[in-house]
């Protein structure tokens, strides 16, 4: 019987711990940005850093980095669809 995912064996525990520390650091930056920075800057920090955090979980914890290109493409198509819906939605409400 084939193992589920042979290349997963090569991911060391250390990688997961590093990703976890990065996620905690990004969360701390987000919280501090809301307290210290100008509001516009804090909003930009949220818009940039929140997808970065989600990307870290997708790529490392959910092993997307090590998956086939076809699965990566499916994930990006789903997220792309969501981004398009949001963009169209804002086009609609800003020009009413």
């Amino acid at each position: 019987m084939e193992a589920t995912n042979k290349h997963l064996h090569s991911i060391p525990y250390r990688t997961y711990i590093t990703v976890w520390l990065a996620l905690l650091a990004l969360t701390a930056i987000l919280v501090l940005a809301g307290e210290l920075f100008h509001e516009a800057l804090a909003v930009w920090a949220m818009l940039v850093l929140t997808p970065v955090k989600a990307g870290l979980v997708f790529f490392f914890f959910m092993h997307l980095k090590y998956e086939r290109t076809a699965l990566k493409a499916l994930v990006f198509m789903t997220l792309g669809l969501l981004v398009m819906v949001i963009a169209l939605f804002f086009l609609d409400i800003s020009y009413r």
């Binding site: 919280v31 809301g34 949220m46 929140t50 979980v57 914890f61």
Partner: peptide, 29 residues
């Protein structure tokens, strides 16, 4: 040799985490 069910359950748990990552700035920050 056979941990696929645990891996799939992990995928679900991580996605629930990702959703919370987005809820945090929307409501609390």
């Amino acid at each position: 040799e056979d941990f696929n069910r645990l891996e799939n359950s992990g995928l679900y748990w991580h996605l629930v985490d990702v959703i919370w990552i987005f809820l945090l700035p929307l409501f609390y920050l």
